[in-house]
Computed example of a mutant assay.
Amino acid sequence: MAYYNNGNRRNYFIEFGSGRPVVLLHGISNSGRAWVPQIAPLVEAGYRVIVPDHAGHGASARLNRPFSVSDIAADVFELLDNLSIEEADIIGLSLGGMVALEIALTQPHRVGKLIVANSFDTTATEEFRTMAEGWARTFRSEDGPVKRFEGIWPMNVNETFRVSTEGVKTYQVWHGLAATADGQSLAYVAEGIVGFDATTSLATLSMPVLFIAGEQDRMSLPDVSQRMADRVPNAHYVEIQGAAHISNVDSASAFNEAVITFLGTVPASTTSD
Score class of each variant (00 low, 15 high):
residue 1 M to I: 15
residue 2 A to Q: 14
residue 5 N to C: 07
residue 6 N to L: 03
residue 6 N to H: 13
residue 7 G to T: 11
residue 7 G to H: 11
residue 7 G to I: 07
residue 8 N to T: 12
residue 14 I to R: 13
residue 15 E to Q: 10
residue 18 S to W: 10
residue 20 R to D: 12
residue 24 L to G: 06
residue 25 L to T: 01
residue 25 L to I: 04
residue 26 H to K: 04
residue 27 G to A: 04
residue 27 G to Q: 07
residue 32 G to K: 00
residue 34 A to M: 03
residue 35 W to F: 05
residue 36 V to P: 01
residue 37 P to L: 04
residue 37 P to K: 09
residue 39 I to Y: 05
residue 41 P to D: 09
residue 46 G to F: 01
residue 48 R to C: 11
residue 52 P to L: 03
residue 52 P to M: 09
residue 53 D to S: 00
residue 55 A to S: 13
residue 60 S to N: 09
residue 66 P to I: 08
residue 68 S to H: 09
residue 68 S to A: 15
residue 70 S to H: 14
residue 70 S to A: 15
residue 71 D to C: 08
residue 71 D to K: 02
residue 72 I to Q: 06
residue 72 I to R: 06
residue 73 A to T: 07
residue 78 E to T: 15
residue 85 I to G: 03
residue 85 I to W: 00
residue 89 D to T: 07
residue 90 I to S: 04
residue 91 I to E: 00
residue 96 G to I: 02
residue 97 G to I: 01
residue 100 A to G: 13
residue 102 E to N: 12
residue 103 I to G: 02
residue 104 A to S: 08
residue 105 L to Y: 00
residue 106 T to I: 14
residue 108 P to N: 15
residue 108 P to F: 12
residue 112 G to N: 07
residue 116 V to D: 02
residue 121 D to F: 04
residue 122 T to P: 07
residue 123 T to G: 15
residue 127 E to N: 14
residue 130 T to E: 13
residue 132 A to S: 15
residue 136 A to N: 06
residue 141 S to W: 15
residue 144 G to A: 05
residue 146 V to W: 01
residue 146 V to L: 08
residue 148 R to F: 10
residue 153 W to V: 01
residue 158 N to P: 08
residue 159 E to T: 02
residue 162 R to Q: 00
residue 164 S to M: 11
residue 170 T to R: 13
residue 177 L to I: 10
residue 177 L to R: 05
residue 177 L to W: 05
residue 178 A to G: 06
residue 178 A to I: 01
residue 179 A to I: 11
residue 183 G to Q: 05
residue 183 G to H: 07
residue 184 Q to I: 15
residue 185 S to K: 02
residue 186 L to M: 05
residue 186 L to T: 04
residue 186 L to C: 03
residue 187 A to N: 11
residue 190 A to I: 09
residue 190 A to G: 10
residue 191 E to L: 11
residue 192 G to I: 08
residue 192 G to H: 08
residue 195 G to T: 13
residue 201 S to H: 04
residue 203 A to Q: 00
residue 205 L to M: 06
residue 205 L to N: 04
residue 209 V to I: 05
residue 209 V to F: 06
residue 211 F to D: 02
residue 211 F to T: 01
residue 212 I to A: 02
residue 213 A to P: 03
residue 213 A to K: 02
residue 214 G to C: 05
residue 215 E to Y: 07
residue 218 R to H: 14
residue 218 R to G: 14
residue 220 S to R: 03
residue 222 P to G: 02
residue 226 Q to H: 10
residue 233 P to V: 04
residue 238 V to E: 12
residue 241 Q to T: 10
residue 242 G to I: 01
residue 242 G to K: 05
residue 243 A to V: 11
residue 245 H to D: 09
residue 246 I to C: 05
residue 248 N to Q: 12
residue 253 S to E: 13
residue 253 S to I: 15
residue 254 A to D: 10
residue 254 A to W: 08
residue 255 F to I: 06
residue 256 N to Q: 07
residue 258 A to M: 09
residue 259 V to M: 10
residue 259 V to K: 06
residue 260 I to S: 03
residue 262 F to Q: 00
residue 269 S to H: 10
residue 272 S to D: 15
